[in-house]
Design a binder for these strands. Structure first.
Lengths: 138, 138
DNA sequence: AACATTGTGTTACTATGTAACGTGTGCGAT
DNA sequence: ATCGCACACGTTACATAGTAACACAATGTT
């Protein structure tokens, strides 16, 4: 039922609720927007949301959009299992659409650059800002 | 005197104060940290800081670190004049050091990727998280 | 049974960012 | 000159984002 179950780790009740809210949203949500979505299911206060989000991000099921202070469900076909090192988004500044991308070329460039400057890379965040295909046409 | 003067655009009083605070800091500062630094010079409220920061970012003299909610003076030898499309930082999670980088290879990968997915790129933010050379040794 | 671990609920608080309104100052157009 | 405009500035009040700390419940361990 939960298409994003973390392998070997069943989500707790709150984690599932937050995950479902994000999956249903088809786009990024702020933590407080999630809180509002879930008041019907008994959520009352920010820590309930943030604790669930922390875990979901740790599992790699959810990404944080740093430049938006918002969260989005992983959009890739198989986001179960491994957490990727490079998280990559294109964010449309007109319609707000967020598309998750993968680029091995960019990942290589990032890793290589980290090596050049002797930086021990844990993860990297790449956020492209501009206009999506639909919006740039208009 | 102000080594970061924007060509053809003299900074206003508040912009200069904020710029100097950031240049002196040798690292990122939050807007509220800047506010505290500048209380002696008459700053009283957040909008004074944010308005100056908006302009400095627009001029390309200051960058915003999205994943830290903080701001840093451009570290590149010649940050005058053109605003770069790709802003690139390595952020040490142990000592907090922030290093601004340039990589034409990465810039190319970003532009090429944007082209592939038909995304009209305005700017991009790349933030590497991990350990700097000094910290990874210990 | 005693204990540790983990998830949960709640209160209160800190931190970050903005809207809106009023004031002065310079400066070009009439 | 003076009117109007644009812009920087100051201030109040508010909105949004995130966390510390404490209490309790459920569960598994020894």
């Amino acid at each position: 039922m939960n298409k994003h179950a973390h392998p070997g780790t069943d989500l707790t009740k709150n984690q599932s609720l937050v995950m479902n809210a994000l999956s249903a949203a088809n786009g990024p949500l702020s933590a407080y927007a999630i809180l509002d979505e879930l008041r019907d299911q008994g959520f009352r206060a920010p820590p309930q949301v943030y604790r669930a989000l922390d875990k979901l991000v740790e599992f790699g099921l959810v990404h944080r959009l740093e430049s938006l202070n918002a969260f989005v469900a992983c959009q890739l076909p198989s986001c179960d299992g491994e957490t990727r090192e490079t998280i990559l988004f294109a964010i449309c500044e007109r319609c707000g659409k967020v598309e998750e991308l993968v680029s091995s070329r960019l990942e290589k460039a990032v890793r290589s650059l980290a090596g050049e400057v002797d930086f021990s890379l844990k993860k990297s965040v790449v956020e492209l800002r501009g206009l999506c295909a639909a919006c740039k046409g208009e």
